[in-house]
Computed example of a mutant assay.
Amino acid sequence: MRVVVQRCKDASVTVDGTVTGAIGEGLMLLVGVTHEDTEKDAKYLADKVAGLRIFEDDAGKMNFSVTDAGGAILSVSQFTLYGDCRKGRRPNFMAAAAPAEAERLYDYFNQELRRGGLQVETGIFGAMMDVSLTNWGPVTLLLDSRG
Rank of each mutant, 00 (worst) to 15 (best):
V3T: 04
V4D: 00
R7W: 00
C8T: 11
K9E: 11
V13N: 11
T20G: 13
G26K: 02
G26A: 05
G26Y: 02
G26N: 05
L27W: 06
L27R: 01
M28W: 14
V31L: 02
G32F: 06
G32Q: 03
T34Y: 14
H35P: 01
K40G: 15
D41N: 13
A42Y: 00
Y44I: 14
A50V: 02
A50R: 11
G51N: 12
G51D: 08
G51P: 08
R53L: 00
R53I: 00
I54P: 00
E56N: 06
D57P: 03
D58H: 09
G60I: 09
N63S: 13
S65H: 07
A69S: 03
G70R: 05
G71E: 01
G71H: 01
A72E: 10
A72S: 13
S75D: 06
V76W: 05
V76S: 09
V76P: 05
S77T: 15
F79P: 00
F79N: 02
L81C: 07
L81K: 01
Y82E: 04
D84I: 09
C85W: 14
R86C: 09
K87G: 04
G88Y: 06
R90L: 02
N92Y: 11
M94T: 09
A96H: 02
A100R: 09
E103I: 06
L105A: 04
L105D: 05
F109T: 15
N110R: 00
Q111G: 15
R115M: 15
R115K: 12
G116R: 11
L118M: 05
Q119W: 08
T122E: 11
I124D: 15
F125M: 04
G126P: 14
A127F: 14
A127P: 11
M128D: 14
M129E: 08
L133C: 12
N135P: 05
P138K: 11
L142S: 13
L143H: 00
S145K: 06
S145T: 13
S145Q: 12
R146S: 10
